[in-house]
Computed example of a mutant assay.
Amino acid sequence: MATIPMYQKRLAPAGLMTRRQLRAAGLRPGGHDPVAQLRYYRRGWQLAYLYDVSLARPIRPMTPGRWRTLEAMMRARRTCPACSTVREYCIPRSLGTCPPCADLGLTA
């Protein structure tokens, strides 16, 4: 297994970006593997993968079908399983129900 090069913070060559930097530029890795690693210190040593910008592809636009799917997923996260009420917030996973149902001791 070949190892990939590792760079320190601010010493990576031009043309390499992290996933976050690609996203901010309107790009995505496009199925390609990382070409290098970035090593930085934040509450301990961290690693971030670096991708070649020349291999990156534009992000896919949100189609009406993708918007509908996203809305259905978020509605499912906001629906209380005990009272079936759709809330304005996501149901806390720690409670399993909306806070009013949790206060009453209702469970799904």
Rank of each mutant, 00 (worst) to 15 (best):
M1I: 10
A2E: 15
T3A: 12
I4P: 03
P5G: 05
Q8K: 10
Q8P: 12
R10M: 13
R10N: 14
L11N: 12
L11V: 06
A12R: 12
P13N: 07
A14V: 12
G15S: 10
T18C: 00
T18F: 03
T18H: 00
R19W: 07
R19C: 13
R20M: 12
R20F: 07
R20C: 12
R23Y: 06
R23T: 08
A24K: 07
A24E: 14
A25K: 08
L27G: 00
L27S: 10
L27T: 06
G31T: 02
G31H: 03
H32Q: 01
H32P: 12
D33N: 03
A36I: 07
A36T: 00
Q37C: 11
Q37A: 12
L38R: 01
Y40L: 04
Y40A: 05
Y41L: 15
R42Y: 09
G44P: 04
W45T: 02
W45Q: 14
W45D: 15
W45K: 09
Q46W: 05
L47C: 07
L47V: 07
A48N: 02
Y49K: 13
L50G: 01
Y51F: 14
D52W: 05
V53S: 01
S54F: 07
S54T: 10
L55E: 13
A56V: 11
R57I: 11
R57N: 10
P58V: 00
I59M: 15
R60Q: 13
R60I: 11
R60G: 12
R60F: 05
R60D: 15
P61G: 07
P61S: 08
M62Y: 06
M62V: 11
G65V: 06
G65K: 08
R66A: 13
R66P: 00
R66F: 09
W67R: 15
W67M: 15
R68Y: 08
R68W: 08
T69Q: 14
T69R: 09
L70T: 09
E71I: 06
A72I: 01
A72F: 04
A72S: 12
M73S: 10
M73T: 08
R75W: 00
R75E: 11
R75I: 00
A76H: 07
R77T: 01
R78V: 03
P81K: 05
P81Q: 02
A82T: 01
S84Y: 08
S84A: 10
S84W: 07
S84G: 06
T85F: 08
T85C: 12
V86P: 14
V86K: 02
V86I: 13
R87E: 12
R87G: 08
E88W: 04
Y89V: 02
L95M: 10
L95C: 08
G96W: 07
P100C: 00
P100S: 02
C101P: 05
L104S: 03
G105M: 01
L106E: 13
A108G: 14
A108K: 09
